[in-house]
Design a protein around this nucleic acid. Structure first.
Lengths: 150, 150
DNA sequence: TCCTTTTTGTTGCAAATGCAACATAATTTA
DNA sequence: TAAATTATGTTGCATTTGCAACAAAAAGGA
């Protein structure tokens, strides 16, 4: 079977490191922009869900969130219906940064998709969505200590 | 334009963290398997080229290589034609680990591609190849300090 | 040839990353 | 209801990660 892992990894690392370099201007530490974007788009989320959506380790997420809060970009509020949950919201400053992140991401996305037709882009988006769904289950299981057989 | 960055990142992180967990059995530290695979497949490469192909920071690559050498999985040999270059080769132990990495990667790849037809896989592989080529240039430039305008 | 630039490699340091291991609230089960 | 399990969050610690900043060899230019 043909391999997609290698190029997926290469593309991901390339775009990620470009973003991290470019977001130093915004005083965003490595890796933080992904969290901020999601919190801006889904205010009221909890850490655990965010980690699961992004497929980032729970504890790494916890610390990134802590830093975002320390830097005044988000705020945690205890869920009144569930003392255990801490809901995440962007601050005004966080919301102010959001469009800059989007603009950069859209540029990178446009560069990545150069030369592809609209149809090809649609196909690619659809296939990646399916791949993501395929892999999500294993990720959760393996993170929880389940051992895959192969 | 539709976005592919987010799902690419999610898929990449998911597969990567699964691999890193599963390769603890092989005493491979986080991130190391990608280097070892490439060195096994392209013996005699230099660090700089490896970093560029993988799109990983030069200094991070240098340290990963150092660890692989410390753990006896690869060996560096100074290029007789160029004192500055250190050629990378797998040791017997490194070569012994290689098939286990491949087997795991093939399994993850198969899981990722579940439900896709041969044609769809071919299309996906082709499109990802083009995306990778599109982004490579920017990555190199940005890493070298060039500022993108957008 | 000599000087400048590029290529390749390393190290200091600060930070992010992630496995264990824990704490506590909520939920499920007996 | 009480006990066991799950969900969510945190911290300790060892490690990787990556920007600066440097070193030295090679390549290019005048």
């Amino acid at each position: 079977m043909k391999d997609i892992l290698r190029n997926i990894g290469i593309i991901s690392r390339a775009l990620d490191s470009i973003s991290n370099i470019e977001f130093k201007e915004l005083d965003l530490a490595k890796g933080q922009f992904v969290y901020l974007v999601r919190i801006c788009e889904n205010p009221g989320m909890i850490q655990e869900k965010l980690a699961e959506i992004l497929k980032i380790d729970r504890t790494t997420t916890a610390r990134a969130i802590k830093n975002l809060e320390k830097n005044g970009l988000i705020i945690k509020k205890t869920d009144p219906n569930n003392q255990k949950n801490k809901l995440l919201f962007p601050t005004a400053e966080g919301q102010a940064i959001y469009p800059f992140i989007i603009r950069e991401n859209e540029h990178s996305n446009a560069v990545a998709l150069q030369g592809l037709t609209e149809e090809e882009i649609d196909v690619l988006v659809g296939l990646l969505e399916r791949v993501k769904d395929n892999i999500s289950h294993d990720w959760l299981r393996v993170k929880k200590g389940y051992k895959r057989e192969y």
